[in-house]
Design a protein around this nucleic acid. Structure first.
Length: 877
RNA sequence: GGGCGCAUAGCUCAGCGGUAGAGCGCUGCUCUUACAAAGCAGAUGUCGGCGGUUCAAAUCCGUCUGUGCCCACCA
């Protein structure tokens, strides 16, 4: 099956794996993915007997392309579903896209603008038609990129929020909410984007500190005057009052009076309102009910009229010299005019204050009084909060739930109408006599003279709020809905808790009779650059993950992202780290090549324990412990710890030690080599399966080559056999200690790694007798022949290694080394003695801790004795 | 203005009461029966400052400083 990786000159003739010496991801990844899809591995079966495991994808915008944030979340979701599939669940990862109202409409409008046209030139129907065309032609590029990443989604269930079925879901729930009086229409101050020409919800407003200027303007004349401060001078033309605090003595004489509004022929009242902070500015506030949410509230309390002075594009409409000016032009013009009249008392510039911007186009939001549709959020939000409070839905990591509660417990009604054309049109019809009818999906809209449908569409988050069940067929009781709802995990960035997560909770609980849409909400951080800085399109640090996938393979990108995934925390990623991951993939690749060249196999039963060497028992013990560890991390969404554990087990233990030790066995041949081959086969088989959910491509290639089986995608998940062998682990730990210590000596002595040295090994104080051959091999030690003269004797962990360096020994280096070792041992002894002399410690510390210290003391004392003797035996310098 | 979080090796981060860890980077030696995208060995930290609790504190408490994020109707 790896014919695409074969090279004619790939070496040994006997049992040659068809693997080149370097892993070349590009050759493998594309074809593998398409094969998986063709074989239907990712298609879930609603009729299956298996337990379901469901994740719905946070639907990317149709306009979107894959960025690192997607790659990150997709990697984790893919790993979760792939593992569950291997564990025998009916795993469904459902893909799809969001129609993304404003974003998409803007895109197509831009396109039209290039043709010199506007949406009005086309008219609503044609424009919407055009958007659909755009979608067919350019939309959904991200879907191809998801294939590239390796996302194991069920393409047969791909959904789009504007699909017929999903539109029906929207209409159904709208009708239900309307009938339950949870949807209503009202005139309020809303956030208006003068560029997109639509209302937007509170959370679609991004606040940022902008430089403005705070001007103080004198209103009224003489005695009957006061000074107000504002950053929005242009709105003064719409002022209908000035407000002061009721207890503010400075203005007590003015309350209730009318004062002259400059630049107009109007007079406005001075009202008393506790909202005013007497400490701030002059303690007097101009009140513009139609253009400021606070002022609107004041207006309501005092029955003030609202005067709208701008049109939907932010152009002044009041008669007079300022008519036709844009709001920003008007601001400076009006300040200029006031200055001429001597009414500007003070100016402060720049004055930094927080200004709202449209999250879509960054235009400054204009508070605007208008008629909109609202969801009455209170009962829904209550239920959404309770579901988490009573533990039916878990938020992971847990401290993120505070944010969730803060939001759902203080939610304002949700403005759901948008003055756009692209989206779900509100299913309400207005009659000639002022009637309003909400039309359900199975009802006929009213016909006849004078009836017309609401022109507004719904906020795009309205339909995405239905995503966990609309995609499964709701409102029909489909087998999918039956089988796969509620979903298991919602995995998404903490930045859309409010936009999306809370809304799905509200709608899910409401539509599905109190059954929450997911059991667990796993919140991830945001992807950052290698210095922890935010990546954004406007920053040069922004990276296209496709570039990295081209250079290092999808697996490398995936592994890097998973490795950075500490729950809820932001993920820094840099190209160096992707390289490191690629190196890891290459390492596994070569280790598997080595194994195959030495007869590693998965054929037959594992040999019984009696036939296994300590080395074999050690690695199998560690292997099973690693399975258990990996399972724990997978279950807890601890991807950083998971990948770290597998990385170190694979590289440090299997590749650096087990494979190295097994070389001796393989060279010797015979039955032990066979046993080792079977064990190595087992270790790699399991390891590759453990890694497969995170790095599916390399592991698939290697695993199928190793096992000859169809695919790792449908392989069984490894099970911890429970086999542990503490004695073997201890034995190998001692072996490692001996080898490392002697290597350090060799290195200190300046010996070249390959240089053979005659040596005598005394392993009688250890359990390492059986490993002498391996130790000699790892340390390049020759048998001590005729005339052997030990120039250095190294005592390590009960073993003694005597080396003959035939007078070439560097006495000074050795003295230095020994002195250092002696100091370390003495420090250890001192610390341990102190500890053991501490009665409070002995009384309170755990038995194991005390035992550990005793052992340390023992070792230290033995070391001091040996090292002292060695130092004494060194020739004088 | 409120809330939350973070300060540990040059960089990015684990550890969260019992001898300071990882990856990358750095130094030296190496083509050694897979892998130089590698191997072996090595160096590097008063765990942000100051107090406190404890036999024992990077780890718990207080406080200060720096820094990041979220929320809020700062005219």
């Amino acid at each position: 099956m790896t014919d695409n990786t074969q090279r004619p000159d790939s070496g040994h003739a006997d049992r040659t794996p068809d693997l080149p010496t370097q892993y070349a991801p590009a050759d493998v990844e594309g074809p593998l993915y398409e094969r998986w899809v063709e074989r239907g591995y990712f298609e879930a079966d609603a009729k299956s007997e298996k337990k379901p495991y469901t994740i719905v994808i946070p639907p990317p915008n149709v306009t979107g392309t894959l960025h690192l944030g997607h790659a990150f979340q997709h990697t984790l979701m893919d790993a979760l579903t792939r593992r569950k599939r291997m564990q025998g669940f009916e795993a469904l990862w459902l893909p799809g896209m969001d129609h993304a109202g404003i974003a998409t409409q803007n895109k197509v409008e831009q396109q039209l603008a290039e043709e010199g046209k506007s949406r009005d030139d086309l008219g609503r129907e044609q424009f919407v038609e055009r958007v659909w065309q755009w979608k067919e032609e350019y939309g959904g590029r991200i879907l191809g990129q998801m294939r590239r990443l390796g996302d194991g989604v069920d393409w047969s269930r791909e959904r789009f929020t504007m699909d017929e079925g999903l539109s029906k879901a929207v209409q159904t729930i709208f009708k239900k909410l309307y009938d339950d009086e949870l949807i209503y229409r009202a005139e309020r101050i809303i956030n208006w984007c003068p560029r997109c020409l639509t209302a937007i919800s509170d959370i679609e407003v991004e606040y940022q500190d902008d430089d403005g200027e705070l001007v103080s303007i004198r209103y009224g004349e003489g005695e009957d005057s006061l000074v107000v401060a504002t950053t929005r001078a242009e709105t003064m033309l719409g002022d209908t009052a000035v407000a002061v605090h009721p207890d503010d003595e400075r203005y007590a004489h003015l309350i209730g009076k009318q004062i002259k509004l400059p630049l107009t022929d109007r007079t406005i009242p001075v009202v008393a309102d506790t909202h005013v902070d007497p400490e701030f500015g002059t303690g007097a506030v101009k009140v513009t009910p139609a253009h400021d949410p606070n002022d609107f509230a004041i207006g309501q309390r005092h029955n003030l009229p609202s005067m709208t002075i701008m049109d939907e594009r932010g152009v002044l409409t009041v008669h007079g010299p300022f008519q036709g000016l844009d709001r920003f032009e008007a601001r400076s013009a009006i300040v200029g005019a006031l200055r001429e009249q001597g009414r500007i008392v003070a100016e402060k510039r720049p004055y930094t204050h927080s200004v709202g911007h449209c999250s879509r186009c960054k235009a400054t939001v204009e508070p605007r009084l208008s008629m909109q549709w609202w969801v009455k959020v209170e009962p829904l939000a209550q239920a959404a909060g309770d579901a988490v409070r009573d533990g039916r839905v878990k938020i992971h990591p847990e401290d993120m739930s505070k944010r969730y509660f803060d939001w759902v417990d203080n939610m304002h009604d949700w403005c759901i109408s948008r003055q756009l054309w692209w989206g779900h049109r509100i299913p309400v019809w207005y009659g000639p006599d002022g009637e309003t009818i909400c039309v359900g999906p199975d009802e006929q809209p009213p016909t006849g003279e004078g009836w017309h449908q609401e022109t507004d569409v719904l906020d795009t988050w309205f339909s995405s709020g239905l995503w966990p069940f609309s995609t499964l067929g709701w409102p029909e009781k489909t087998p999918d809905l039956e089988k796969f709802y509620a979903t298991d995990v919602l995995l998404t960035g903490h930045d859309i808790i409010f936009f999306w997560v809370a809304r799905m909770m509200m709608f899910g609980l409401y539509a599905m009779d109190g059954q929450a849409p997911f059991h667990t909400i796993a919140l991830t951080g945001l992807v950052r650059d290698e210095h922890g800085k935010k990546m954004s399109k406007s920053n040069p640090n922004s990276v296209d993950p496709l570039d990295w996938m081209d250079a290092y393979g999808s697996d490398a990108v995936r592994f890097t992202l998973a490795r950075g995934a500490n729950p809820g925390a932001d993920v820094p990623i840099g190209e160096d780290w992707v390289q490191a991951s690629r190196n890891f993939a290459n390492k596994i690749w070569n280790a598997t090549r080595f194994a195959l060249m030495n007869g590693a196999t998965v054929e037959g039963e594992l040999p019984p324990v009696e036939q296994l060497s300590a080395t074999d028992r050690w690695i199998l013990s560690r292997l099973n412990a690693t399975i258990a560890e990996a399972d724990g991390y997978y279950d807890d969404y601890q991807f950083a710890k998971l990948t770290d554990a597998l990385y170190h087990f694979a590289w440090d233990e299997v590749f650096d030690w087990y494979v190295e030790l097994s070389k001796t066995t393989f060279m010797a041949g015979g039955e032990p080599a066979k046993v080792s081959g079977r064990v190595l086969g087992e270790v790699l088989d399991v390891l590759l399966r453990l890694l497969h959910p995170v790095i599916p491509f390399v592991t698939e290639t290697l695993w199928t080559t190793l096992t000859g089986k169809e695919s790792a995608v449908i392989a069984a998940w490894p099970k911890d056999s429970g086999f542990r062998d503490a004695a073997a682990e201890q034995e190998i730990a001692v072996l490692q200690q001996v080898v490392t210590e002697v290597r350090r000596f060799r290195s200190d002595q300046g010996l070249q790694p390959g240089q053979r040295v005659p040596a005598q090994l005394d392993l009688s104080g250890t359990a390492l007798a059986a490993h002498e051959g391996a130790i000699r091999q790892l340390l390049r030690l020759q048998p001590a022949g005729e005339g052997f003269h030990a120039t250095a004797t190294l005592p390590v962990a009960g073993a003694t290694v005597a080396l003959d360096l035939s007078g070439t020994i560097d006495v000074e280096a050795e003295r230095k080394r020994l002195t250092k070792a002696l100091a370390a041992a003495e420090k250890d002894k001192a610390q341990s003695t102190a500890k053991l002399g501490n009665e409070a410690f002995l009384a309170k510390a755990a038995e194991a801790a005390v035992e550990k210290i005793r052992k340390r003391l023992e070792t230290a004392e033995a070391d001091i004795e040996r090292i002292t003797a060695q130092l004494a035996g060194l020739p004088k310098g």
